[in-house]
């Protein structure tokens, strides 16, 4: 496939383990996808305007701006990007905030199940 046509996924998480896990599981399921990583919401915003990812997986509790704010900003500038919040913060208020920002919610830990769920949302 042409490099330009393969979906690009941006993983945003301050935990190295989580980024690596997510990358490995997505690569298993969708070997063609290109994957880039950011360790904070601020870095993610920069990368989004440069790289224009199709999909974003976003942690919530990170140093700097929160994943929710970052997701909101990405959504306004790039309404086509599909965003999943992948977080240990599982309470109702976070799920609500996710739906308010129009993004999909996936609870940590990162498992085959949660990654399958996220991929299904990206491709829906």
């Amino acid at each position: 496939m042409d490099e330009k046509n393969t979906p690009l996924l941006l993983i945003v998480d301050d935990s190295r383990m989580s980024r690596m896990l997510l990358r490995a599981m997505v690569a298993d399921n969708r070997p063609a996808w290109r994957i880039i990583e950011a360790v904070s919401g601020d870095e993610a915003l920069k990368m989004v305007s440069e790289a224009r990812p199709d999909f974003v997986s976003m942690d919530v509790n990170m140093p700097g701006i929160s994943g929710l704010e970052a997701a909101g900003r990405i959504r306004i500038r790039h309404p086509d990007a599909r965003i999943v919040l992948c977080t240990a913060n599982i309470q109702e208020s976070t799920r609500e905030a996710a739906s308010r920002a129009g993004v999909h919610f996936v609870a940590k830990p990162i498992t085959v199940q949660s990654v399958t769920d996220a991929i299904a949302f990206f491709e829906a």
Partner: peptide, 15 residues
């Protein structure tokens, strides 16, 4: 358009 976009826009301005 939906209310999400409106709410997010005001939120972003506040941020």
């Amino acid at each position: 358009a939906n209310t999400h976009t409106l709410l997010s826009s005001a939120d972003v301005a506040l941020y």
